[in-house]
Amino acid sequence: MKRYWLMKLKKYDKKSKLEVWKYLNTASESPHILNNFLANGFRIWDEDEHRVIKTNLDVSEWIKKNPQSERNESMAQKITNLMIHTSYEYAKKVYNCEVELGDALDKIVIASGMYRGSALAYISDFRLMLEGREYKRTMSQNATRFYLENIGNDYGIECLETAIKAVLLHINYYERVKGSKLKSLVKVIDDVKELFNLN
């Protein structure tokens, strides 16, 4: 695998200044070769050191040419399985002090396209699950199921029971604030309990 890769800006949120970049099929062993491709909205990424080498970005000009991207970025994002799996893996690494939070967020965004704010919320929810504490940012039904099942597999039954407690606290919080119950998450808890033979 070559070391230096060309990346293109795909989405930009003007309010939060969130950038979502995508790998292109252009790579080289020398970053200087990629300089010829550095039009506005492109950057060179060092795959070995996981850092940006050079960026060419005039945000105002880029938005003028890509107005649809800015509008889409402010809308709610559909959370995909790739986002769920990637955020879980990096949430573990952050919790286990294997990677810094900022680096984890960068890698989740690059690998899956997940919004940085959503990635931060999922990492925070993971930590609160393991601590059995109430979290306020809603996690999708599929993500909650994946997180609970993998917490059970990775950390054991005791931690799974603690995580279930956190989800129940979140359900109660949501009911207090929104006035409705998250029945889908109640079912997720029931399914996970059955899967792990919990009472």
Results as ranks from 00 to 15, higher is better:
Tyr95Gln: 05
Asn36Arg: 15
Ser112Trp: 02
Lys8Met: 11
Ser118Asn: 10
Leu34His: 11
Tyr23Asp: 13
Asp48Val: 13
Ser74Trp: 01
Asn36Glu: 15
Asn36Ser: 14
Ala91Asn: 03
Lys54Trp: 07
Tyr122Trp: 12
Tyr135Leu: 05
Gly117Glu: 08
Asp58Gln: 12
Met129Pro: 03
Ser118Val: 10
Val109Phe: 01
Met83Tyr: 05
Tyr122Asp: 09
Asn81Trp: 12
Lys15Pro: 02
Asn56Ser: 12
Thr55Glu: 15
Lys93Asp: 04
Leu130Asn: 07
Trp62Asp: 12
Glu73Pro: 00
Asn56His: 09
Leu18Gln: 15
Gly41Lys: 08
Lys65Ile: 11
Thr80Ser: 14
Glu131Phe: 06
Met75Arg: 15
Ile123Ser: 03
Leu6Glu: 05
Thr80Asp: 02
Ser87Met: 00
Glu89Asp: 14
Cys97Asn: 13
Val59Gln: 06
Met83Ser: 00
Thr80Pro: 05
Ile33Trp: 06
Trp5Ala: 03
Lys92Tyr: 05
Gln77Trp: 00
Leu128Trp: 07
Tyr90Trp: 09
Lys64Gln: 12
Ser30Glu: 04
Lys8Cys: 02
Thr26Gln: 06
Lys14Leu: 15
Cys97His: 09
Ser28Ile: 15
Leu38Asp: 13
Arg71Ser: 08
Asp125Thr: 14
Asp13Ile: 07
Thr80Cys: 04
Ser118Cys: 04
Trp45Gly: 02
Leu57Glu: 03
Asn81Asp: 14
Phe126Cys: 08
Tyr115Ala: 11
Glu70Met: 11
Tyr4Gln: 07
